[in-house]
Design a protein around this nucleic acid. Structure first.
Lengths: 320, 320
DNA sequence: TAACGTGCTGCAACCAGTTGCAGTAACAAT
DNA sequence: ATTGTTACTGCAACTGGTTGCAGCACGTTA
């Protein structure tokens, strides 16, 4: 079988506890002994058994990362950054997605709870009440959800959304629509609150709506019928679908209606028109969430967003 | 602390081993006792400690999934399917990416090796020799790489690529280019072998090349200078970048040059032109890879690919 | 010289399960 | 009545580390 701590101890002529300490509490062992143990361990190819270690210490050096939908391009950069950060700290990352289902969220947390030291929960769809029960079972970091007493990384989507609406107003639009997201989304609520009172802009809210390309396509009819000249969509995927759906209805973007997305996940340069969007630092969020979880710093971190103006927005057609 | 097997045993008036067996070998314990143990365990909220279990059994019920680049849209659907399949079998999935770096591949395998029961390695970039050493350390399933003696799931990219080239030939193209992938890619080699002898078609090979959008952009000059009227790109990302790069050079797609991608990861309907591509069943691959790993069936599974003709291909401009 | 502190190491219990072996009771076969 | 078989259950060793406590050698201080 694999080489254990006892093999190393025997080969060095020291007790197992000394070997153990050279790895988990190096300062407690004589420098000379330590180097001897380390070299022997090295040449024997010794690797500590994490299962055994976590049995006594209670910590696994594993983290869980739960996202709403792995196939949503918003998440992969976040996951990638989170994974890299975890690796750099000698942690491993379980990744799972909930298919936008609050029940699965809860189920996954329970499944993870015994074998991770903490969980990063991204864009949860559960109610505050349900979340509050979950977060007391083990360390948590929430991404894009604020909850009192819980470490949080949120992107300042409110400011970004407001800037987007002001951009539309600045282009001369007077009546615009907000296509909101799924009902459990905190982000969606933030956006809604932030954009209702932009000076000179009348905003109609459409939704809740699935945060997918299909969701965007299917909502195109309502948008076209709403008598608006501009739209802010819940995310880029919805914006893309919406543009496609409008196109099928003979409504041009940005000729007839301007469309802005949120999250900046659609980076492809080839989209026509290129999507004006509120970019989010998703990789930063993933990195920070893992860092916060590991260091167990309790904090509420807010990351800035910014408007990226591309081609899907233009002044409205006629005079108002 | 948490409720252990001993708490349950005590509450039931049976020995710990009986409780243990009701979970890990139910047939060895009396039906009556079993139900009693189960109900008590349930109401005490007992959950077996995986660390303790894996210490004695040697199996962790964890799997590793390693991909070349999480941000490449080819992988998320595969990961999503793999994760769902693992969950359904009560396995957890560690996910990691290598940033296309063979050295990281090796490093990750070693990092995982002590705490997973097996690894799904997708699109490895390591040499055969390096891979052969890796796969003998623990159970492996390779995706999109054939290696003798190793369980494998590959997509029949050769046939798909050939069909794509025949599509170009059918449109009247006579001289075309293949933009190949990174040097470590088995898929790239398969494609190259498959497309060199298509009747009526002269093929120039460009590359190796980074499998990213930027890779596509940067290779546009070579493609434009190659005197070809059609291109097969290593993957959709490269194809997209290539189209953009050609556009910047004033070369129209498909007006001047037809472009075909491979993998079907770019599903956005909004791309202009919509990309003709060889679609791959990535979700199936993820699901099957995990299934094969868990059941430890040794097999070489080949999944079909198919050509999706969209808008990036057209007949060549003038007469040959 | 005695008392004390310091730095290192060994001892052994402990974490939460699993499992080979042995023991027991009930029943069937001889 | 004896033996054998079957079906369960208990005992205890074992997995591979961690850690509180004790012991020991050595140097310091009173």
């Amino acid at each position: 079988m694999a080489v254990t701590i006892r093999d190393v101890a025997h080969a060095c002529g020291v007790h197992v506890s000394t070997v153990s300490r050279t790895f988990s509490a190096p300062h407690m062992v004589n420098a000379e002994t330590r180097t001897r143990v380390l070299t022997v361990a090295e040449q024997l190819g010794y690797r500590p058994n994490r299962a055994a270690r976590s049995l006594t210490t209670g910590r696994t050096h594993n983290l869980g990362l739960i996202v709403a939908d792995l196939a949503n391009p918003f998440f992969p950069p976040l996951i990638k950054a989170a994974q890299a950060t975890a690796r750099a700290r000698d942690y491993h990352l379980f990744v799972a997605d909930t298919d936008e289902d609050p029940a699965k969220e809860e189920e996954l947390v329970h499944a993870f709870s015994k074998q991770v030291d903490g969980i990063v929960l991204c864009s949860p769809r559960s109610s505050n009440k349900a979340l509050e029960k979950l977060v007391e079972t083990l360390p948590f970091v929430l991404v894009n959800r604020r909850l009192r007493g819980v470490t949080t990384v949120v992107m300042d989507v409110a400011r970004g959304a407001r800037t987007a609406m002001e951009h539309l107003a600045g282009l001369g639009h007077r009546r615009v629509a907000l296509v909101s997201g799924p009902s459990g989304s905190w982000t969606s609520g933030e956006i809604r609150k932030a954009v209702t009172d932009v000076p000179g802009l009348e905003t109609v809210v459409i939704g809740p709506n699935a945060p997918t390309e299909e969701g965007g396509v299917s909502v195109a009819g309502q948008v076209a019928a709403a008598g608006v000249t501009g739209v802010l969509a819940y995310n880029d995927l919805v914006a893309i679908g919406l543009i496609e759906g409008l196109d099928e209805l003979g409504v041009g973007v940005p000729g007839d209606i301007s469309v802005i997305g949120i999250d900046g996940s659609i980076t492809g340069r080839l989209y026509r028109p290129k999507l004006t969007t509120v970019a989010m630092p998703t990789a930063d969020a993933g990195r920070m969430a893992v860092d916060l979880l590991i260091t167990s710093m309790s904090a509420a971190t807010v990351l800035e967003t910014h408007l990226v103006v591309r081609e899907s927005t233009a002044p409205p057609k006629g005079p108002p």
